[in-house]
Amino acid sequence: MSRARLNVFLEREHAQRLEELSAMKGLSKSGIIAAALASFLSPDGGDRREAAMARRLDRLSQQFERLERDQTILIETLALFIRHNLAVTAPIPEAHQEAARAQGRFRFEQFIEQLARHLQRGQRLVKDVIEEATPGEGEFFAEGNETTSTPETAA
């Protein structure tokens, strides 16, 4: 097979990267450029790029779905906690309100310190809770799933 000689002008950065790749792989610069050109001109090259893009999009979609699922779990957890807390907390008499506020500030400071320690250690309690709470990836949020209990149905 005969080969044609071409003079090609490259950006300095591309020429430098080509030089580094040639040295690292032990290949000639002509061989690297020929392989890149063959891949670019290949009829299935576009299909391969499209398939790679589709795989990346699928992976991003799965990550987004997990984030959406986790967010839904967190919102529901917070809503149930607030409902429960409001239902079981008795009103505080006027004489004890200042002491209750001080106690609340103290508890909140403890909570923030505990949260900071937990995050510094790199632990994820939410992930552990979600894994314990979800019976299976597809089962938990299936439409029409009436097996989860709420405070109304549990009573």
Rank of each mutant, 00 (worst) to 15 (best):
L60P: 06
D44V: 06
Q16I: 04
F9L: 10
A87Q: 00
L80H: 08
G31M: 11
D70K: 04
N85V: 08
A34V: 15
L21M: 09
P43V: 14
A38V: 13
L57A: 09
Q103L: 09
G45S: 00
K29S: 05
K29L: 02
A100G: 07
M53L: 12
A100W: 12
A52H: 05
R48Q: 02
K25I: 07
S42F: 07
E11L: 12
L67F: 05
L60V: 09
G26Q: 08
L41E: 01
R17C: 03
I73G: 03
L74H: 13
L41Y: 08
E13V: 14
D70Y: 02
G26S: 06
T72S: 08
L18P: 03
V88M: 11
R59Q: 13
V88I: 04
E20G: 10
A52P: 02
P91S: 12
L60H: 09
I33M: 07
S42A: 06
G31K: 12
L74G: 01
S28D: 13
R55Q: 01
A23R: 00
R56L: 08
A79Q: 10
T77F: 08
R59Y: 10
E98Y: 04
G46Q: 07
A34F: 12
A36N: 05
E98F: 07
A54H: 05
Q103R: 08
T72L: 02
L37T: 11
R17P: 08
A102W: 11
F64P: 14
L18H: 05
P43S: 10
R69I: 02
L86V: 05
P43Q: 01
L78G: 12
T89I: 00
R59W: 14
L21F: 06
L57R: 09
A36F: 11
L74C: 03
E50S: 11
A23F: 00
H96N: 02
F81S: 11
L37M: 14
E20W: 01
T77N: 03
M53W: 10
L86Q: 05
M24V: 06
L10C: 00
S28F: 10
G31S: 04
F64L: 11
I92R: 14
L21W: 04
L80S: 06
R69F: 06
H84E: 15
S61V: 10
T72I: 02
E98V: 14
I82L: 02
A99Y: 09
S28I: 15
G31N: 10
E98C: 07
S61T: 15
S42D: 04
I75K: 06
S39T: 12
L10H: 00
M24E: 03
L57D: 00
H96L: 04
A54N: 08
L78A: 00
I73Y: 06
P91H: 03
A99C: 10
V88T: 01
F40S: 11
E11V: 09
Q103V: 12
E98N: 07
I82Q: 15
E20D: 13
D58P: 14
L37C: 01
F40Y: 03
R66L: 06
K29Q: 13
M24S: 13
R69L: 12
E20H: 05
R101Y: 03
L6C: 07
R56H: 01
L6M: 11
S30W: 14
Q62S: 12
D70L: 04
L41G: 05
S39H: 14
D47N: 14
M53I: 13
R5P: 09
A100L: 15
H84W: 09
K29M: 09
R83Y: 08
L57E: 11
A51H: 02
A36P: 02
A54C: 14
